[in-house]
């Protein structure tokens, strides 16, 4: 960059030039994120004649669609809660391990699994726990435990199991920095002041971890809510989830006004934004004590 030529320009123009290299990125973000979202928002507010109306939202709230929201929220809440609970315990157990090698391997496994998801994962669960799955057979033949018909991998309980496969590792990764932030001195100081281990956890460790746990829950919730491929591969159109429903509407498999999908998408975006914003807020809370 030639400083001599820029010096002569007005400071305003120079400042503008400074933004120039960021133009492609912002253009991309606007074209691929902002405008598409806005156009869904707008078309969700239009009726078939092009007038402003909330009819699409009314259709998004018919019984079957309402059920899809409830199913998605319930599935997300369950997998997020289990993910936070078990993931934090597992993350803590991994971190406490003496062997550096094991800690690295376990973290690497979590790393990979977080990005697994999708079709291959769902299929792996069918192979493992499907009606003729390997573990299903093993339990039946070796231990006489019949999973089916009370359990079905192609149902909500199967989805919970499959989703946990990426939820647990994600929580392990999310909680690790906060667990590392728990100083051993705090435990020692609490013991030194006469507290029991339980009191240390109740009064110090858990309150310190609380924002991270809440933030983790929100991210896991969003992660599960937006998932589609896993559910689609595992259960096909049988299960009534928001993402499955929107996809079906896109493909025109369901005879409905096209605007219904838009309204459902906008509601989903609202739910997801609340989760992401909430998790950013809790993230700020965890930073609060670090000054």
């Amino acid at each position: 960059m030639s400083t001599r030529s820029t010096e002569r320009r007005a400071p305003g123009a120079r400042r503008l030039l400074l933004w120039l290299p960021l133009l492609p990125f912002f253009l991309f973000g606007i074209l691929m994120e902002i405008i598409p979202i806005l156009s869904v928002l707008l078309s969700s507010l239009r009726d078939s004649q092009g007038g402003l109306s909330l009819a699409n939202y009314a259709r998004a709230m018919t019984k079957i669609n309402r059920e899809s929201f409830m199913n998605s929220v319930r599935l997300s809440a369950i997998t997020a809660a289990l993910g936070v609970g078990i993931g934090s315990l597992a993350g803590y157990a991994i971190m406490q391990s003496r062997s550096l090698f094991f800690r690295k391997v376990a973290t690497a496994l979590a790393d990979v699994a977080t990005n697994f998801g999708g079709a291959p994962l769902a299929f792996a669960f069918i192979v493992t726990l499907g009606s003729t799955g390997i573990v299903t057979q093993l339990l039946k033949k070796a231990f006489g435990i019949a999973l089916y018909p009370s359990f079905r991998v192609y149902s909500v309980s199967g989805l919970v199991l499959a989703y946990l496969y990426f939820q647990l590792p994600l929580m392990i990764l999310l909680i690790q920095p906060s667990l590392r932030g728990l100083k051993e001195e705090w435990r020692e100081a609490a013991l030194n002041l006469g507290a029991t281990e339980a009191r240390y956890w109740a009064k110090v460790a858990l309150p310190v971890l609380a924002p991270s746990l809440a933030g983790g829950f929100l991210l896991l919730f969003a992660n599960s809510y937006g998932a589609y491929a896993t559910a689609w591969t595992l259960t096909g159109p049988d299960i009534n989830l928001v993402t499955i429903r929107i996809a079906a509407l896109i493909r025109g498999e369901v005879q409905l006004e096209p605007g219904t999908a838009d309204a459902m998408a906008v509601i989903s975006l609202a739910i997801m934004s609340l989760c992401v914003l909430g998790s950013m807020l809790t993230n700020r809370l965890t930073q609060r004590w670090k000054s």
Binding site: W19, F25, P36, A227, I246, I250, S268, M272, S273, V276
Partner: peptide, 27 residues
């Protein structure tokens, strides 16, 4: 410019794949 850049990198977390597909089709 950092907050604006980060906004665009965080937004995708809040957009489910099916919604992104739908939005692109609509647009």
């Amino acid at each position: 410019a950092r907050p604006y850049v980060e906004l665009f990198t965080i937004l995708p977390f809040g957009i489910p794949g099916v919604v992104l597909a739908l939005a692109l089709i609509r647009c």
